[in-house]
Design a protein around this nucleic acid. Structure first.
Lengths: 156, 156
DNA sequence: TTTTTGGTTCTGCAAATAGAGAACCAAAAA
DNA sequence: TTTTTGGTTCTCTATTTGCAGAACCAAAAA
């Protein structure tokens, strides 16, 4: 029986943030675990803390945690003389997660380029619009990393 | 029986682009319809063209088309003395679709702000990292519309 | 050596998604 | 007035997803 407690409002916030996380491809249970580790006053929670607070089964908890570990959204520490793992949000990696999100524009872009390259020349106007899209995406992809750097600089 | 034809390679490209479209929340059939209207040499396809080329049932075709119409990914024209609707990709709206994609960073951001505002002051370092994230997102949200404008200018 | 702990894996089910096929329907054509 | 066209809507089914519960397991503790 874990002693870690969480308020009703915090739980609601976990739901809310969980929904946000569900958007970009996280399944419900994993999204809530990720959210919990951002909202909770106690930053490092054990398997059972998580299970009890979120009312999940062991299997769901295990799967959610391992999924989040795999994509590096969370990490864990251990404590001497304690077999448990203490999970916490991997905030340091969030910036990369954000960058990666932007980067999949590039995937879209490359497929779109393929489409442009094989279009019939007969539809000139359409092709031009499409090329414009490709060019816009490429432009954004170039500029965004620059923005990241700019921001880094501005805060130092 | 429609006369519009499409090559084997184009069909494969439809699949490929369709997968890209499935990512951001389009269901398979709709994603393929959207993709087809970008790949096809003939830019304006009828209900039955689409149905036959993609081998969909009438219901699937109808639902996919209406979904895409609702989110303005496609539009249609009519021809005098012809009851059919001719569907085509709404390229003009793509830029907006892209912008909207960026904008949902803002939703994430506002929830994250809520989280920051109610965190215990005890976890100073963590809170600072979180605030940094919020600030980074805000920064990106400010800069991105500027980038759009900059690009518009650069091509004129 | 047996028991407990901290999980993982397997089995199964309930709900959600996706699409087929047929029935249906209103407007236009015959 | 009847038929055809261009779809829409309803019903049903296959598949996928998401999770519970129980069985299981290796390492550590007793």
């Amino acid at each position: 029986m874990s002693t870690v407690k969480i308020t009703e409002e915090q739980l609601q916030l976990v739901e809310k943030l969980g929904l946000v996380f569900e958007g970009p491809g996280l399944q419900p249970a994993a999204a809530r675990v990720a959210a919990l580790l951002v909202v909770s006053d106690t930053l490092e929670l054990t398997f059972d803390d998580i299970r009890e607070i979120l009312n999940l089964s062991k299997s769901a908890t295990s799967n959610a945690i391992n999924l989040l570990l795999n994509v590096h959204r969370i990490e864990y520490i251990t404590k001497p003389g304690d077999r448990k793992r203490y999970f916490r949000s991997n905030l340091a990696r969030w910036k990369n997660v954000m960058k990666e999100k932007f980067m999949d524009l590039e995937k879209t872009n490359s497929v779109l380029k393929e489409v442009v390259d094989q279009r019939t020349p007969a539809t000139k106007e359409f092709n031009q619009s499409l090329e414009e899209m490709v060019s816009l995406m490429r432009f954004m992809n170039q500029q965004i990393p620059r923005l990241f750097k700019e921001w880094e600089k501005s805060k130092s």
